[in-house]
Design a protein around this nucleic acid. Structure first.
Length: 276
DNA sequence: GCCCTAACCTGCGCGC
DNA sequence: TGCGCGCAGGTTAGGG
């Protein structure tokens, strides 16, 4: 579910609610989210510390503690983070709960248990969370020249390249499709086959789609799975032009019909008229 | 470097 | 009503 815009929306929500609060207790109710280390490790690394900041890298959310340690949360496919009053009953699949000193709790909820919550020492990042250390640049920080270098030195299908977190951090299946539509590039094009104009359009599209999605609070699909920390839905799904619209007429050109193909084992949606 | 498959899990919608 | 099937926003490992 959550890609960069959803994680950024969660980060901003937590920033307003949790910074300056002390974690007085941490409850681990399921071993899967703490599988990388242990429940004991997360509890030891969090209880008694005060939250001094919230960071994000790609789809990784990072809680910064005054102890010098940090907590990494990755939501993967079905994870949610909800801030609620302590008196409220926890929903099903609440696997980790951070209890704060102001009567709030932060819940990590994850039906499919792919997500992770890991306390770590930032000085040991390379060994503890190597994939976080190896992320590519943020979409809003990559220059046109850098993007061109990446595109021209590889020949993978462009959609697969955009999904590769070591190339650009934070893009997922929804925004990959929307970016390629905005850029008018077919998802199965080889990255080194793009014209200079298409490269420029792709660079613009990456920045614009992600910025617009963040401004809209992310995308909440029909299953309602993604919500922000207060349980509110995003609205960028109303701006989707291709994702989830297979078989429908293209909203951009009005002539093509949105097709669904599989690229890199993921469904990809595009307009064969607009995107070349 | 790149591609493909399998795996990790649960929930939901659909067809029969 | 109930069952089986396919599919789902992410990522890694292993083999070729």
């Amino acid at each position: 579910m959550p890609e960069l815009p959803e994680v950024e929306t969660i980060r901003r929500g937590l920033e307003g609610r949790a910074v300056g609060r002390q974690i007085v207790d941490t409850e681990v109710c399921h071993p899967r989210p703490v599988r990388r280390t242990s429940a004991h490790h997360l509890i030891e690394g969090s209880v008694g510390a005060t939250i001094s900041g919230l960071k994000r890298r790609g789809k990784y959310l990072i809680i910064v503690l005054d102890s010098g340690h940090e907590i990494m949360i990755h939501l993967r496919m079905s994870g949610q983070i909800i801030a609620a009053a302590r008196r409220e009953s926890r929903p099903r699949h609440t696997h980790v709960a951070f209890i704060l000193d102001d009567g709030q709790e932060l819940w990590f909820i994850d039906p499919r248990t792919f997500g992770e919550v890991v306390a770590f020492d930032p000085l040991q990042l390379e060994t503890t969370i190597p994939e976080l250390a190896g992320l590519g640049p943020e979409p809003d920080q990559i220059s046109l020249a850098e993007l061109r270098r990446i595109l021209r030195t590889r020949r993978r299908q462009i959609k697969a390249l955009l999904l590769d977190q070591t190339v650009i951090a934070g893009l997922g299946n929804i925004y990959g499709d929307e970016i390629l539509h905005w850029a008018r590039v077919r998802p199965d094009r080889r990255s080194n086959s793009l014209s200079p104009l298409s490269e420029r359009r792709l660079h613009t599209a990456i920045g614009a789609v992600i910025a617009n999605a963040i401004a809209a609070g992310g995308s909440t699909l029909g299953d309602g799975q993604y919500v922000d920390v207060s349980g509110a839905s995003g609205s960028f799904q109303h701006a989707h032009r291709v994702y989830g619209r297979a078989g429908q007429r293209c909203l951009t050109c009005g002539r093509g019909w949105i097709r669904r193909v599989v690229i890199a084992q993921r469904s990809s949606h595009f307009c064969p008229v607009c995107q070349r």
